[in-house]
Structure formats: C-alpha cells, structure tokens
Write a protein that binds this DNA or RNA. Structure first.
Lengths: 119, 119
DNA sequence: CTATGCAGTTACTTTTCCGTTCCTACTTTA
DNA sequence: TAAAGTAGGAACGGAAAAGTAACTGCATAG
C-alpha cells in the first residue's frame, strides 16, 4: 500500500532536498560555481565528511550535480550543477524570496534560536 | 557558530515542508479545499492522528493554514490554506512540474520501490 | 446499554538519521 | 622520517523523528 500515491511526485523531490545540508550545497555550487570536495567542505562550515559525501552522491544520482574526477595524484574531484540543478535553482530562488518575505513578517521569529540551528 | 548563516532563510521554510506528510496535506487542502480533521485524515491515507495533529499545528503556527473550531458538540474543526499557504502553493506547483519532468526522464526510477515509500 | 465518531492527547517503542572517530593509499613538504 | 593534504569508506553510538496504541469526554445511533 503506497502511502504517498503517484499523484504527488513532489514527495520524491522534496525528499531529495530535505536534509539540512542539501539546499545549502546547491546554493554554494550555484553561487560560487563548481567546487572541489575540500573547498566545498570549507564552504559549508560544520558539515562532516560523511554527510557531504552522502549528499553529493545523492544529488549526483539524481542528476542534479556532476562529478568530475581528474586521475592525478592526489586525485582532484570537482562538483557542479547540471542543467537539472539549475532548474531546481529557479524554484529555490522563488522559495527563498517567499522565505525572505515571511522573515520580514516574523514568521520564523517565534522559533528563533531554537533547535533548528543545532547540528 | 550558526551552521546555516542568515543568507539562507530557505532552510527554515524547507524545514517546515520537510516531513513526509506536510506537502501532501497542503496539496489536499489546495486541491479539495478546506477540510475537517477527520476528512483530512481520510484524504491522507496512512497518516496517524498524531502526525496529522502535529503537522497541522506546525503549519498553523507558521500561518500557512487556518484553523476554525465550531463550539458544537461534538466540536467541528476545519482547516484551510491561508494566503500565505497559497504563496507556497505556486512554488510547490512549479516544483511539482519539475518533479513531473524528472519522473518522465526516469530520475526516480533507480530508487523505485525503495525505502522512501515506506515512510 | 454498548458502540461509534468527533478531535485530539499522552505514553511507549521503533526506526532512522546524523555526527564522531578511525582508516585507506599516495605524495609533497618540513 | 613524520606530518599534512587529497577524497573519501566503515563502524559505532546517541538523539531525534515517526509509528503504535491506549485514553479522553460527549453525543448520537443501534
């Protein structure tokens, strides 16, 4: 019994964007352009290697980002947004704008400093 | 040390939409119009009373939905989207469209039947 | 007089996620 | 020779999220 009927493929996509880091990674890649693993890790302060790897793999699996590995020693791996990732970005921008407006209206003020900053 | 700097208020809003049921609830409310608690529960098959209550409270707290309680016996409680909820809906529609396209391209096919349906 | 529906609340249990830590194999630098 | 950087992988463990179940009080239906 499918709990989430096919009418709502949005669920899959939201599940993709959901994690605390995912949108931030996309944001960095679209804002700073393609980045190497280490640079990305430094650009997303606080993320663990494990999480970064996992998110990148997932986004790559969904075709949202590409991965380019140079067979040098040590290997240099770069990540960047694909066209699909850019599709996503326009929506995230729209959402960001709404979030911005809501912030002005104090929607998130009530939970301010709350748990959602931890981790 | 704020892990998610203020540049990204999107994080708060995504945290709101994140849960497995949240977007589905919004979808139902925007598709079928305002609903009473029981009807909503039946419209989102598989959700538990507890989850539904929690999500509704959260969405209400964010001003995305309204709650109207008639002091009859038994009490009749209705929920519906606010204008803020409708803001959200346009974005969700855009996202849904992207998800729809991706589905056609088989993006989610690889994980098909996987754990993400068991929620 | 028992069952059922309304709209939840509370407690308990399970699952899942996520962070932390240690490890790889290789090269350059001190 | 030891340390550090590169790009991760594997194992462990705690906390948070989510599911399950039982309970509320009142009214109507059987």
């Amino acid at each position: 019994m499918p709990k989430v009927p096919p009418q709502c493929p949005m669920d899959s996509i939201l599940r993709l964007l959901m994690g605390p880091w995912t949108t931030y990674i996309i944001w960095v890649l679209s804002d700073q352009g393609p980045q190497r693993f280490g640079a990305l890790k430094r650009a997303v302060p606080g993320i663990s290697t494990r999480m970064l790897t996992e998110r990148l793999r997932m986004l790559q699996g969904a075709g949202v980002i590409w991965r380019e590995q140079a067979e040098t020693i040590p290997p240099a791996v770069s990540y960047g947004l694909t066209s699909r990732g850019n599709d996503l970005r326009s929506v995230l921008d729209a959402l960001g704008e709404i979030a911005h407006n809501w912030e002005h209206e104090g929607v998130f003020a009530g939970e301010g400093g709350g748990r959602h900053e931890g981790q």
